[in-house]
Computed example of a mutant assay.
Amino acid sequence: MNLGPACDRRRKNAAMTVLVTGAGGFIGRWLLDVLRRRNVRIVACFHHRSQAPVSAAGVEYARGDITDRAWVAKVLDRYRPDRIVHLAARSLVGPSWENPRDTCRVNVLGTVNLLEELRNIGFGGRLLLACSSAEYAAPDPPRPLLESDRLWPASIYGMSKLLADQMAQIYGSRYGLDILRVRPFFLIGPGKRGDVASDFAQGIVSIERGLSRRLLVGNLHPVRDFLDVRDGVEGLVTCLDRGVSGQVYNICSGRGVPVQELLGEFIAQARSPVEVVGDPSRVRSHDEPYKVGDPSRIRSLGWSPHYTLEQSVAAILEYWRAQPVDQLREQG
């Protein structure tokens, strides 16, 4: 893994240090898995109230809170990273409406804390900031979104990520920091909770185990750009390695999939008959009808997705089939 010549000159005989915030989250855990296969020293930062990532050789762990600026300064001073991947965030749209203060505190203040400390120490490495496709305005007419398209979030979560995105741009240009940003679309995969794919999987596994009779669903019409998290984290590493400083990259497949089609794939792989029933309480008023990205820019770096939707669904179902009964949500 080549993460830049500056680091090679500074540490000719030492492994590069990559620090990951939010390492205990869905994307963070998969990113650690990729980094462990490379010759780098990994520092996994995770929230003090979250479950620690699985211990592994070559990984050091730092438990704390990104909103605590003193803790951020301490971690940077102790580990002196060459590269940072900032994933720590409140990452679900629904809860952002219920607790906007906490969403902005983590997503905006946490990012500013990190940027301020990097400025203070004259950080000479590279920061990759995970932003979001939720920053984009809905395209009219529907079409894949370019990184240059209008940013106008439809949720508090999206606005918090937009503010963090723009703060990173300002710090990069004003203070000469090597910062690039990524806007992942809808990453799905084993271990994620609270999204439509995991909801479908939990419901189907509940039916397979005889815990539920029907699968309750909400709006099946939205079109989304679903991408396997394993491809997503490879995209992160590609940008960290080859991305242009100051640039932003969509991490997406470029293919729009109606939620109805996603559900059909889950049903096709179910081990029991599935009766689908519409549930008005599951229809979210903030659902955007179409959100698909254009991956041309990240593809120019040599990245491309490898996992099919069928493979992603199979992996998600197997994950939930391995969970104990008390982890499943009973439905109808």
Rank of each mutant, 00 (worst) to 15 (best):
G24E: 04
S91R: 01
R36F: 09
V85G: 08
C45N: 07
S91Y: 02
R230K: 10
G332A: 12
Q247D: 15
Y249E: 02
L301C: 03
I156A: 06
G332F: 12
F185D: 13
I84T: 05
S312N: 10
V34G: 11
V93G: 02
F186H: 15
I316T: 03
R214T: 15
H221P: 15
V18E: 05
K192M: 15
T17D: 03
S300G: 04
G243T: 07
V283T: 11
R329F: 13
N99V: 09
N107P: 07
L115I: 06
T238R: 06
V93E: 05
I121P: 13
R255A: 14
S312F: 07
G332L: 11
L76M: 10
P184G: 09
L211Q: 06
R329M: 15
P280L: 04
E318D: 14
T21Y: 01
P295I: 08
V93M: 04
P184F: 04
V233D: 07
G24H: 00
S212E: 08
A88Y: 00
T103Y: 05
W152M: 15
F46E: 04
Y175K: 05
W71C: 04
V237A: 00
V292P: 03
V112C: 08
D195S: 04
W30Y: 14
R183H: 07
A52V: 08
L263K: 02
Y157C: 00
E310Q: 15
Y175A: 04
H221A: 15
V217Y: 00
R255L: 12
W152T: 15
R126G: 10
R37Y: 07
D165W: 10
S50H: 06
G332R: 11
